[in-house]
Nucleic acid binder design. Structure first.
Length: 231
DNA sequence: AAGCTAAGCAACCGCCGCGCG
DNA sequence: CCGCGCGGCGGTTGCTTAGCT
C-alpha cells in the first residue's frame, strides 16, 4: 500500500476535487510559500483551496511547519540539542511538539524521527549491553535519566558511532545532471548541462563549493519569492 | 557490478481537544 | 448540549540512499 502515491480521492469519474498525495513538488512549495507570504498562514483548508493547491489543509500545514517555514533549522542535531531532547523526553515522554518548543527551529517531526532512529537504537544497544552484563533488564526511562544526566558532549558517540557520522541527506533541491532531488522527491528535470540553463527555473540555484553540484536551498527559494513578488 | 539490508526522513493517518454556531 | 470543522499531535508507513556482502 502506497500512502504517498499520486492523486487520490475517488475514481476520477466523479466531480470530486482530486487531492494530491505524496511528495511535494517544487511548484507546490513555491505556491504555498508565495501564498503564505502574501496572505499569512492559518485556516489551512481554505488556504489550500485559495492557493489552488490540490492538497488537504493538513498536508499544507505539515509541509509549511516542517519544512517551508523560514525559521526551520535543517542539518545535524547538535550534542547540546541531543541533551535537551533526552532531558525533556525523560521529563515529558513522547510529547514531541512540547519538546520542539524548547528547540528553536526544530520541528516535532524532526525530533520524533531523530529519537526513533538514533536514540532508540542507542537505548536498544544499551539495553542489550546491560542485559548481557547483568541479568537485570533496564528500562528505557532509567536509561534516559542516566543519559540525560551525563554532562558533556556526544553522549551517544562513545557507544554509537552512527551519532558521530550522522549526516542527514540533503533536503535542499539538489541538482545533478540527471535529476534534482528534494528529500524523497525526485522529479524529471530539464537537462541542465550548462550553468546558463539554470535561469530556466524560477529559483536561482546555489553551487556547492565542494561537490560542484547545483542545488536549491531554502534561502534560494525565499530569495526567488522576493523576485516573484517584485521585491 | 549486483543484490541485500538498514538507516534516515518526508508525509500520511487517525485520534483528540477546542471553538463556534 | 450537540454537532461540525479545524488545528494539533503522536504513531506509522514507505521511499530513497548509503553501506555492506
Amino acid at each position: 500500500m502506497d500512502k504517498r502515491g499520486g492523486i487520490s480521492g475517488g475514481s476520477g469519474s466523479s466531480g470530486e476535487a482530486e487531492v494530491r498525495k505524496g511528495p511535494w513538488t517544487m511548484e507546490e512549495d513555491l505556491i504555498l510559500i508565495n501564498y503564505i507570504a502574501n496572505h499569512g498562514d492559518g485556516v489551512w483548508n481554505s488556504l489550500a483551496k485559495s492557493a489552488g493547491l490540490k492538497r488537504t489543509g493538513k498536508s499544507c500545514r505539515l509541509r509549511w511547519l516542517n519544512y517551508l517555514r523560514p525559521d526551520v533549522r535543517r542539518g545535524n542535531i547538535t550534542p547540546e540539542e541531543q541533551l535537551v531532547i533526552m532531558e525533556l523526553h525523560a521529563k515529558w515522554g513522547n510529547r514531541w511538539s512540547k519538546i520542539a518548543k524548547h528547540l528553536p527551529g526544530r520541528t516535532d517531526n524532526e525530533i520524533k524521527n531523530f529519537w526513533r532512529t538514533r536514540i532508540q537504537k542507542y537505548i536498544k544497544q544499551t539495553d542489550v549491553a546491560a542485559t548481557a552484563t547483568s541479568s537485570v533488564g533496564s528500562q528505557s526511562s532509567e536509561i534516559n535519566d542516566q543519559a540525560a544526566s551525563t554532562s558533556g558532549h556526544n553522549v551517544f558517540c562513545a557507544q554509537d558511532h552512527a551519532m558521530e557520522t550522522y549526516s542527514p541527506t540533503t533536503t535542499s533541491y539538489q541538482h545533478t545532471n540527471m535529476e534534482f532531488n528534494y528529500g524523497n522527491y525526485s522529479a524529471p528535470v530539464a537537462p541542465v548541462t550548462t550553468a546558463t540553463t539554470t535561469s530556466e527555473y524560477p529559483v536561482p540555484m546555489t553551487v556547492d563549493d565542494q561537490t560542484g553540484e547545483n542545488y536549491w536551498g531554502m534561502d534560494d527559494i525565499w530569495s526567488s519569492m522576493h523576485l516573484l513578488n517584485g521585491n
